[in-house]
Amino acid sequence: MHTDIDVTADDGVALVSVRIDNDSPVARRLRVRNRLDGPVLPPRRAGVPEPGWDDEGFDGVVPAGSTVALGYAVALSPSADRDVAPTDVDGSPERAVDIEVLGRADESERAADSTPEDAVRTLGSARPPADAVPVSSDPSSTVAESGAPESATPEPTHATTPESGDERPDPLSQSERAAASDRTGPSERPTDADVSSALEAREARGHETDQSVQSASLATVERRIELAERLDGASVADAAAALSEADAGVEALDSLDADRARLRRLAARATALADRAADADPDADALRRLA
């Protein structure tokens, strides 16, 4: 049994990959336990963790003479110092994971019955997409924010829901779940459920709001950076003039470090997207002819 463990940490999330070679002539059962400080975010299909994963880690079988590759994420505890944690795990990745070989795998251990989780995993979720769900119950905030895609949808839903009048308004459990995760407070670690509900809530909000938020905050960041540039190496008189003209005070400069990190992330994401856009080049003319 040979194992190879790799850990990369970035922005409060550690990505752990484990490679296990079984060079023996029999299948072996093993247990992989996470030892990093945070909840395990297992690989998922259709929102359901892959077979063998639980809150602690992975439990499964490596076939004879074969290799199994595993990967999961850990939301590192916010209380841990983020600058220290990555170097710590990078330096000794084997301390991040505890691998225990439980001996020879028994053929009869496989459960014959399929579970609802198996069904969802293999067949895919049948939920209607978030964009198809009308948000009529709270027109003041949501419709104004999200614009076209959602305000166009209520009509077909009313046609299919003659009885909807007597049901309670249903902006669905996303908001409830979001509220629930808010209640847990910032001091607690994010659980798996929190992460998925946050993702779902973001998905529901739509990409347009994301964009507008980004462009609005870019302008704010730009003003802060301009102020910082004017103050850099300026004389007392110049600095006083700059501060009196600017609508922000010196305390605005405190967030410069955070701004720098955010902008770098945004730039990395934009570059990655541009690369993908350059690579994906379908034959538009042929597709048009097809349509």
Partner: peptide
């Protein structure tokens, strides 16, 4: 129920 919001909020795994 008949609403899309209800259908989206439903976790089919609980059906078991």
């Amino acid at each position: 129920g008949r609403t899309l919001a209800g259908a989206r909020a439903a976790d089919v795994r609980l059906l078991a």
